[in-house]
Design a protein around this nucleic acid. Sequence first.
DNA 1: ATAAAAAGAATGAACGTTCATTCAGTGGGG
DNA 2: CCCCACTGAATGAACGTTCATTCTTTTTAT
Lengths: 190, 190
Amino acid sequence: MDCSEKRAAIIQATLELVSEHGFHGSPVAMVAERAGVAAGTIYRYFESKDVLISAAYADLEERLLKKILEDYPKEGAVREKFSHLARVLVTQWISSPVEFRFLEQFHNSPYGIAHRKEKMLGGNQDLCGKIFAEALEKGLVKEIPFPMFFALVFGPLIYICRDHILGFFTLDDSLLQQAIDGCWNAVKLS
Amino acid sequence: MDCSEKRAAIIQATLELVSEHGFHGSPVAMVAERAGVAAGTIYRYFESKDVLISAAYADLEERLLKKILEDYPKEGAVREKFSHLARVLVTQWISSPVEFRFLEQFHNSPYGIAHRKEKMLGGNQDLCGKIFAEALEKGLVKEIPFPMFFALVFGPLIYICRDHILGFFTLDDSLLQQAIDGCWNAVKLS
DNA sequence: ATAAAAAGAATGAACGTTCATTCAGTGGGG
DNA sequence: CCCCACTGAATGAACGTTCATTCTTTTTAT
């Protein structure tokens, strides 16, 4: 096992444990055990536990973005772009509860809030921001602040994934389509 | 200061600290200091830290429910009931970020997930469940599982409150109305 | 009414545990 | 033989919880 494999194992172990037990239920010693390394080794790859967690998040985000851009309908209609984004997100999250639960943990922590604040206040538009801008320009959606658009459109998707993963209901393809349509109805003009 | 005042002070301190620093950033010693009591005193009122946190949550929920039922339009249309519920929730949360942040912390913790599971799988319908049942019966909303209804309708409201509190945008009355309408559009039939 | 005694509440130092982090030691590759 | 990635026991800080002690209130006896 070379260096990058060991790094990946540590990150994978972090994702699994944090998603199952939360940050504070995932001691470094336990991460080390699951990754098949000694506790001290982790500190050869990551400066601190905080850095490890942020790195795990960055890893996840990068992979997710790659998945989204794979078949992204660059030339399609706005509505199509949104549908694609929503579909890939939900599909990915549902097929990998570990990653989903980790993201939830991350977003509801000091790390996540700082991260969100940076993204929101920094000018760099992400995919979702671009979709909103384009929809706005073409007069397809209500004129509302972007965070409100985001809330109306992605809030439900996240909740739906959570409830599906927790077993409160079973999300099939038809329900997912209804959810995506519903989300769009919440923001579309008229 | 008599007994119930001291209990209230401890709960208030818990709400404030947890909402600001999370469960694990709120040591019992710190709660005690803010409440103006000694650390040991807390254990005269609450068996453990876990019990304290659950009690703080129960306290909050009870007050919230009382607020909602104050002017509840028992005889009104379904749509009115929903509007009222949404309005009171958002208003209350926004006017008291401490309580909102505590609820968020709670819901994303083992405590909260267990609590949610109980509520969902237990047959006891809460207010929101009743609204859904009535709307369904009258053919006003799509036939979807209840958790999906909940997600589409309350997911956005929670996100909106969070973003308003974090200062990402400012929620005025007109925007709130748009949000509530949008949420309903997401689930209404046709 | 007053003092003594009992009961109850509150205190905060101390305890045992758990955790992130460190570092002296180990062993395999160059 | 040396180097360095790796190890895992050691370290010390921080935590939840306990408990012997102190302070406050209530009850009893005179």
